[in-house]
């Protein structure tokens, strides 16, 4: 446990060693604001909830989370510090988990800084705060799943740019899988069970439920399993690729 904590602290501090972290947070806040108020028509709807806010998170994360994840391992490989890290008395699992948790905490911080919108909606109306808390939880879980994908793919290359593009593509596939348009397409050519399976893999279908305040254990398990799967893959990829 101790090594995870030490690695976690180092990693999290390294985000704030450069202006990148602040730039990221500012962009995140600006974009989530813009999406909510312009695209989501927050005021015009005249409803006291945060649905327009959460509804755009899958798209917001599609680009922003791979940007956080891209440096996780690609940078270590490029600078050679991966050799230092993996010859310290830490297990691969500890290293993978610590880095992931640090990145996740960073995204959580960015997400937490959207609290003014929560205050706003409480000031303007009388929202169901339980639903909002659930929405934040779902959003955080989804960000974790994006991050785990990004972390794994960042281990596959030395180049942060390549890592970023790969992650966006893979995350996009996971998003698309739940889109009615795509599902209709599959429905035309594949049996219903396959369509259901594809829909079942999508971030969108699982997030939509939680963001509306419906906590379904299956959705939680889905995100945790996705994170677990990609982190495991992350460790495997590091093992395979660390030599070159």
């Amino acid at each position: 446990m101790k090594p995870i904590l030490t690695l976690f602290q180092r990693e999290l501090r390294s985000y704030f060693a450069t202006p990148v972290a602040y730039v990221f947070i500012v962009i995140f806040l600006l974009l989530s604001g813009a999406f909510t108020f312009y695209l989501g028509r927050f005021y015009e709807r005249g409803q006291a909830d945060l649905e327009p806010f959460f509804q755009f998170h899958p798209w917001l994360y599609l680009f922003l989370v791979p940007a956080v994840a891209m440096r996780l391992w690609a940078d270590e490989r490029k600078s050679g510090t991966i050799e230092l890290l993996l010859t310290l008395p830490v297990t691969m699992g500890q290293a993978v988990l610590a880095k992931f948790l640090a990145a996740w905490s960073f995204v959580a911080l960015a997400l937490a800084l959207t609290f003014p919108i929560w205050i706003t909606v409480n000031y303007l109306g009388d929202p169901d705060n339980g639903v909002i808390v659930t929405g934040y939880l779902g959003s955080l879980l989804m960000a974790g799943a994006y991050l785990a994908i990004g972390a794994c793919l960042s281990a596959a290359t030395r180049s942060q740019v390549v890592a970023f593009i790969l992650s966006v593509v893979v995350c996009f596939l996971f998003l698309l899988a739940g889109f009615p348009l795509v599902l209709d397409l599959f429905r035309a050519i594949a049996p219903q069970s396959l369509v259901d399976a594809i829909a079942g893999l999508s971030f969108l279908s699982h997030f939509n439920g939680i963001s509306r305040g419906v906590i379904d254990l299956r959705d939680l398990i889905y995100f945790l399993l996705t994170i677990g799967f990609w982190l495991y893959a992350n460790a495997v990829v590091i093992d395979l690729k660390k030599a070159d």
């Binding site: 180092r10 501090r13 390294s14 060693a17 450069t18 600078s79 050679g80 510090t81 050799e83 230092l84 010859t87």
Partner: peptide, 11 residues
Amino acid sequence: LPEGAPSYGEM
């Protein structure tokens, strides 16, 4: 000490 003495540059 790995070849090239890598360390975390931002620290």
